[in-house]
């Protein structure tokens, strides 16, 4: 039996944060790659699901809808695949549309979903989303202004505690890079070398 750390119970109590990461190899590429990475409040990986889909080839679909449909399908298959139940879900606002999740969205989740964007990024958001701004560490450890658009509402209770913990520990943006590295480990060349 390993010797438990003093904060093990706290960490377990808070559950897992899920990070949904979606990538397109290039603008005209017909594939979308997705990963769902579960981390505990200490940033330790718990589960990693991955998949890729091809965009629908039907000419009746508008390009934007094809892309959204692909993200939806990726998310659904990843949710289907994983075994853990997250306390909250984070995704990048530039890859996941505001109306995908939530009560009004195509996929309904039973916990808060936060779409993350740095202050420098221009992204759309829905008025139904609750916007929260915070400072969190970027890939170099520098604190930067970041927005999180929550649906159906900002986290409370355990989810709020978990989010506070991961944001304090620089785990709001960094896990998406990790998930990207994981996708490259699986798929290699099509995604290039850097997230």
């Amino acid at each position: 039996m390993p010797i438990p750390f003093h904060d093990n119970e706290d960490i377990d109590e808070l559950g897992a944060a899920a990070f949904l990461h979606v990538e397109a190899p290039s603008q005209n590429n017909a594939q979308r790659y997705g990963a769902l990475l579960f981390l505990n409040a200490r940033g330790e990986p718990l589960e990693f699901a991955y998949n890729r889909v091809e965009l629908i080839g039907n000419a009746l679909w508008r390009p934007a809808d094809r892309a959204v449909a692909a993200v939806r399908r990726l998310a659904a298959t990843l949710f289907q695949a994983v075994t853990l139940t997250p306390t909250l879900l984070l995704c990048r606002a530039d890859t996941v549309p505001p109306y995908l999740f939530g009560p009004e969205g195509q996929i309904e989740l039973q916990f808060p979903v936060g779409r993350v964007a740095t202050a420098a990024e221009a992204v759309g958001y829905s008025p139904r989303e609750a916007q929260v701004s915070l400072e969190t560490a970027d890939r170099d450890g520098e604190l930067i202004q970041t927005h999180v658009f929550w649906t159906p509402e900002a986290p409370v209770d355990r989810a709020a505690d978990l989010f506070t913990r991961i944001s304090r520990r620089g785990l709001v943006l960094e896990p998406f890079e990790r998930a990207g590295k994981g996708l490259r480990e699986v798929y290699g060349d099509p995604l290039g070398t850097a997230p």
Partner: peptide, 15 residues
Amino acid sequence: RLETPPEALLRASGP
């Protein structure tokens, strides 16, 4: 690959 990157582990603002 999916473990917390070492450089992040050593940051004061890290996990």
